[in-house]
């Protein structure tokens, strides 16, 4: 049974954490990214569950610290951040809102779902052209590949499907 107070608290906690962002793509919140999986309150202890994007993603430690700091600032002292591996994170969990934010930020959102279904085409985030070429399978971070637009010639990051 979730008491009314806990319910109110949970909403407030989700609100608070909506301002915690990916340190490497600061336009995306952990919710947009699908990294924030759950928040639960047992007695006075808050447990936040996050899941790593990539096993070796160096941003995970920062995200964990940012969550703890954000909750501490709001007066919540007893916080545990738990990393869960299963089910494995997929770019399918990225919200529609998150995809749009990425595009405006200059990063092309993932074009296919994790099981390989085509969702959209890879389009240049600058001019919208679908005439693009891949320059490298790996970009500035593990989650991105490097592309170039054949029309406006701008190079851009593409958020890989995984």
């Amino acid at each position: 049974m979730v008491s009314l107070d806990q319910q109110t608290d949970l909403t407030r906690l989700f609100d608070l954490l909506s301002s915690v962002v990916d340190p490497e793509i600061p336009v995306l919140s952990l919710q947009d990214l699908g990294v924030l999986r759950d928040i639960s309150v047992t007695d006075d202890v808050i447990e936040v569950t996050i899941t790593p994007t990539y096993a070796g993603c160096p941003a995970m430690n920062t995200m964990q610290a940012d969550i703890e700091n954000k909750l501490a600032e709001a007066g919540y002292q007893q916080v545990t951040v738990r990393q869960s591996l299963s089910p494995a994170w997929t770019t399918d969990w990225m919200s529609e809102n998150g995809r749009e934010k990425l595009r405006r930020y200059g990063i092309a959102p993932p074009a296919t779902s994790a099981c390989g279904q085509q969702k959209s085409t890879i389009e240049c985030p600058q001019c919208g052209s679908a005439e693009v070429k891949r320059i490298s399978e790996f970009g500035s971070t593990a989650c991105k590949a490097l592309y170039q637009c054949k029309d406006c010639l701008e190079p851009f990051d593409y958020f890989k499907c995984i």
């Binding site: 096993a55 070796g56 591996l85 490298s136 399978e137 790996f138 500035s140 971070t141 490097l146």
Partner: peptide, 20 residues
Amino acid sequence: LEEDLALTNVSLDFIGRARL
């Protein structure tokens, strides 16, 4: 440069796996 980034990205994946 791109290949340098790729090699080190793959490296990170393996190190992350080792941590787990």
